[in-house]
Write a protein that binds this DNA or RNA. Structure first.
Lengths: 250, 250
DNA sequence: TCAATGAAAATTACATACACTTTAGCCGCT
DNA sequence: AGCGGCTAAAGTGTATGTAATTTTCATTGA
């Protein structure tokens, strides 16, 4: 199997801790599909490929198992967890529920001046980007960042670590990762940006339950788009039902 | 610090894997408060106390950090995570939301014959226990198991692993652990058991959103009882506000 | 008295050797 | 040929030694 050539001893970004650096590299490899789902991760092979000993590799694998990205079985080591299409769709549903709670908490607890500023900036940036009726090259990537700022800031305002970690796990489900753009039309993005405005209004107005409901619907609509784009792709490919999943997990 | 005498080399229950056994022991010690929140967990001391080498101890600590029970900082090791009162109350809110989704999934997906049987059994058992107007010694413990069966079975019926793991994490927040009985009155238990009946009805009737709403309210009401009993205790103790938290975390 | 400083001690990070378990393949048997 | 058990290879689990980092604390200078 050619020593899993996708993983190279790049030295890693996080200085001073090989385990964390190794963790990032393995996560990256799993998320972008370089190692297949269900595949067994061999410690000695990984340590050779990354040019470190087995110790930090084991640490990284255990941490990734904690994130839910790997499975562990005693005396058998770690395998890449399978994420069937159902599980991926469900993850959006769970995330919708959790981010709804986050929005509620934010509305109850209020935003700091900094947080308000960040959110208002992201709203204005989105407005500007959407003024034109269509996207140019790279605009979607830009909007992805704007979107990320909005959600991250609200999550911070919820002031609850457990919630933040759970939502982060939802984001790390292979296909729902932000790097896999879930192709959207301009109209969809505009609608979602409008959602952002309304959610922010609800939070500023200190209307927790309305904020929750709006956020839930907001995230759920992403799920709907995902499902829609999947069924379309699978029809275009006039292939069997499984191909939709394969396309997306890739 | 007397070698953390609470932890003894009991051999552990899980055969064939010291790391898992060590993990159970440390978790237990953290959950029952033998090691204080914020305390630093020393590898060599733990390994001496448990009569194993540092390797399985490190593995256990890493895994527990993944569960969210410990914090990790590079070059500083692991500390017991702090759970302020706010976080504990929030955990109920999060759990309510997640179990709500679980109930919805169960209603959408339907219950297996086995699951139906288990739930109906738990409902009948609860009915019998509550026929008398008051509890005798040990009844509360029995009801705790009945309650556990109901929730566990519904969670299994949701058929989603991520959801199950997240809810499990909520349960493992120190004070919300089932071992800390949140003293309830007979009337409260009766009301909650009625909730169970209604939730089951909604699921059988395939009414997902009603099931979700009922489950959410059901779990939220536990939070309400918790907060109520806390404020009462803190009043009874005519101590300052912090004592309420201390009592419960203990 | 207090802060800065600089070893020494304590502690974690990593590497590696060895023990134990699982896996795979081979051989003999039916 | 097919099945069961044996053996070697591969792989994971544990122990321990060494390197690097943090923490402690006594010392020094203002």
């Amino acid at each position: 199997m050619a020593d899993q050539a996708v993983l190279e001893p790049t030295g890693g970004s996080r200085a001073g801790n090989r385990a964390l650096s190794v963790m990032d590299q393995i996560r990256e490899a799993v998320l972008n599909g370089s190692v297949a789902a269900g595949e067994r991760l061999n410690e000695v092979r990984l340590s050779r490929a990354l040019a470190v000993s087995r110790t930090p590799v084991r640490a990284a694998l255990q941490a990734l198992a904690g994130e839910g990205l790997l499975d562990y079985a005693p005396n058998r080591g770690f395998t890449v967890r399978e994420f069937p299409l159902d599980a991926i769709v469900d993850a959006y549903e769970i995330r919708a529920s959790l981010e709804g709670v986050a929005a509620r908490f934010a509305a109850e607890r209020g935003l700091s001046p900094d947080e308000k500023a960040t959110i208002e900036r992201s709203l204005r940036a989105g407005d500007r980007l959407l003024e034109r009726g269509s996207f140019e090259t790279g605009d979607l990537t830009i909007y992805r960042d704007i979107n990320g700022d909005f959600h991250d800031t609200l999550l911070a305002a919820a002031r609850n670590r457990m919630l933040a970690e759970m939502i982060r796990i939802c984001h790390h489900v292979p296909v729902s990762s932000s790097r896999n753009i879930v192709a959207f039309e301009h109209r969809d993005v505009r609608r979602r940006h409008d959602d952002h405005h309304r959610i922010y209004e609800a939070i500023i107005a200190r209307e927790p339950w309305r904020a929750e409901m709006l956020m839930r619907e907001h995230v759920s609509s992403v799920k709907a788009s995902l499902v829609k784009s999947m069924t379309e792709r699978s029809r275009d490919n006039d292939a069997d039902a499984t191909s939709a999943g394969r396309l997306l997990v890739k």
